[in-house]
Simulated scan of single mutants.
Amino acid sequence: MTAAKDKMKGKVNEVVGKGKQASGKPSTRAEGRMQERKGEAQQVKGRAKSALKDQIDKA
């Protein structure tokens, strides 16, 4: 997956996760927290890929 896709999917997961956290059901709120964390991790992965590509391109 490309860095841009990782970042985009990460942002979508964060937004959906935040929406689930607004639920009145505890299990859905917990699922939302996990999905938000997954999104954050995907964004970190995307940023790392971008940084690595930039370093390779400079070399």
Score class of each variant (00 low, 15 high):
Lys49Pro: 05
Ala22Trp: 01
Ile56Gly: 04
Ala30Phe: 03
Met1Asp: 12
Thr2Asp: 15
Lys49Ser: 10
Arg47Met: 08
Ala51Lys: 15
Ala30Asn: 11
Ala48Leu: 13
Ser50Met: 12
Val44Thr: 12
Ser23Gly: 03
Lys18Gln: 10
Glu14Val: 08
Gly17Gln: 00
Lys38Leu: 06
Gly17Thr: 03
Thr28Ala: 10
Asp57Met: 14
Ser27Trp: 05
Val12Arg: 08
Asp54Asn: 15
Lys58Leu: 12
Gly46Glu: 05
Ala30Ile: 06
Asn13Tyr: 03
Lys49Tyr: 11
Gln42Met: 14
Gln21Asp: 02
Thr2Val: 01
Leu52Ile: 13
Ala22Phe: 05
Ala51Cys: 01
Ala51Pro: 01
Lys18Glu: 11
Met8Ala: 14
Lys7Glu: 10
Ala59Leu: 14
Gly39Asp: 02
Thr28Val: 14
Ala59Met: 13
Gly24Phe: 03
Glu14His: 03
Asp54Pro: 03
Gln42Gly: 08
Lys38Ala: 08
Lys5Tyr: 11
Ala51Val: 10
Val44Glu: 14
Lys7Cys: 09
Glu31Cys: 02
Asp6Ser: 11
Ala41Arg: 11
Lys9Ser: 10
Ser50His: 11
Gly10Lys: 04
Gln55Met: 13
Gln21Cys: 02
Arg33Pro: 01
Lys38Tyr: 07
Ala22Asn: 01
Glu14Asp: 00
Lys45Thr: 12
Arg37His: 08
Thr28His: 09
Arg37Cys: 04
Gly24Tyr: 03
Ile56Leu: 15
Lys7Arg: 13
Lys7Phe: 04
Ala30Cys: 00
Arg47Ala: 07
Lys49Cys: 06
Ser50Glu: 15
Arg47Ile: 07
Gln55Arg: 15
Lys9Met: 14
Asn13Leu: 09
Gln42Ile: 00
Ala3Met: 01
Asp54Leu: 13
Ala41Met: 13
Gly17Trp: 00
Asp57Tyr: 11
Gln21Ala: 01
